[in-house]
């Protein structure tokens, strides 16, 4: 029942959920918030995950998240060099270290607020990692690649070929290693070449067969697009990059955050338009249902509500 529901959800919807959670985690102001995001993410993964290779990585993400928190706290202690006197948890001697690049202060007093700050910072990134893990473990990358914009169709195909090839490659490596065992080791035979070259040659041969088969079935057809439209798309692409670059400069110079955000927003919007325009040169259809269903829209709506509540809470005068 749950599996069935999970398979009905569009892969991009998982990304919407992930990104919403990541935004909440990134702007969290208390450890309670970051912990809730982390807990919710893990819960989602546990409930909805299918038996697929990309779904088995929760453990890795948990270890990574924990490591981030620990590293952040250790950094705070080792490189604190603080002389604070209030709420001291740990009193350590202070050192100075110099590699000829200016002194680095080490250790010193560790206060409770400082520890809390480090924990919050660390758990923020940890929660972002777990939030993104939701999409990575629940969204089938193959399906996601199918809904890539037409302008990126060729590359998406290449990437999905690579995803399909990877398990076969592991088999090829094993097969070639066995064959390698038939020949002893000589002067010219490094393990790397003895393995890599036969696998590469073999896979290249196979991939050219694949390319031939795909092309013979129509892969590479393009609908005719007017030169003007294509040029417009390129110009818009360049314009969006220029706007983004300028926005970055303005933001970094501290001149005006609103002005920077406006420039960046213009850049983002025009880049989307440019990619859309370029996508029109691909007229392909798809047998997979890539359209979103009401369930998807409900989930997206819920995420928006969650975000609004989160930010309203943050700015509300207490």
């Amino acid at each position: 029942m749950i599996q069935k529901l999970a398979s009905k959800i569009h892969p991009s919807t998982w990304w919407v959920i992930s990104l919403a959670l990541a935004v909440i985690a990134g702007s969290a102001t208390s450890i309670v918030q970051t912990l809730s995001v982390a807990a919710l993410s893990v819960l989602l993964i546990l409930v909805f995950r299918e038996n697929a290779p990309w779904a088995r990585s929760l453990k890795f993400y948990l270890i990574l998240a924990l490591a981030v928190v620990v590293i952040r706290v250790v950094f705070r202690i080792v490189f604190s060099f603080s002389q604070e006197t209030d709420d001291i948890l740990l009193e350590l001697p202070r050192f100075e270290l110099d590699f000829g690049l200016g002194a680095i202060g080490l250790l010193g007093n560790v206060s409770a607020p400082a520890m809390l700050g480090a924990l919050l910072d660390g758990s923020r990134l940890a929660a972002i990692i777990l939030a993104i893990a939701v999409a990575n473990t629940l969204a089938n990358p193959r399906k996601l690649l199918k809904s890539a914009p037409g302008a990126l169709y060729e590359i998406a195909t290449s990437v999905s070929v690579a995803i399909n090839l990877a398990p076969q490659l592991i088999e090829s490596f094993a097969r070639v290693r066995r064959a390698r065992g038939l020949r002893g080791k000589g002067r010219k035979s490094s393990t790397l070449n003895g393995l890599l070259i036969p696998v590469l040659e073999d896979t290249l041969d196979r991939s050219l067969l694949l390319a031939a088969s795909m092309d013979a079935r129509g892969f590479g057809r393009k609908s005719t697009q007017s030169k003007g439209e294509l040029l417009l798309a390129r110009v818009l692409g360049l314009q969006s990059l220029l706007a983004i670059t300028m926005g970055v400069f303005v933001l970094l110079s501290g001149f005006s955050a609103p002005a920077a955000m406006t420039l960046l927003a213009i850049g983002a919007v025009t880049s989307v338009i440019s990619v859309r325009l370029t996508s029109r040169r691909n007229s392909r259809t798809s047998i997979a249902r890539t359209a979103r269903t009401p369930i998807d829209f409900a989930v997206i709506a819920a995420c928006s509500v969650l975000l609004i509540v989160h930010f309203a809470w943050a700015v509300m005068p207490v």
Partner: peptide, 28 residues
């Protein structure tokens, strides 16, 4: 977004099935 635009820039030129296949293999 920037990655997407650069990818589009590089792939709107002539990128044939053959090169895509080699790309797929090397990526894998």
């Amino acid at each position: 977004l920037i990655i997407a635009i650069v990818l589009v820039e590089f792939s709107t030129g002539e990128i044939g099935s053959r090169q895509l296949a080699i790309l797929g293999v090397m990526t894998a």
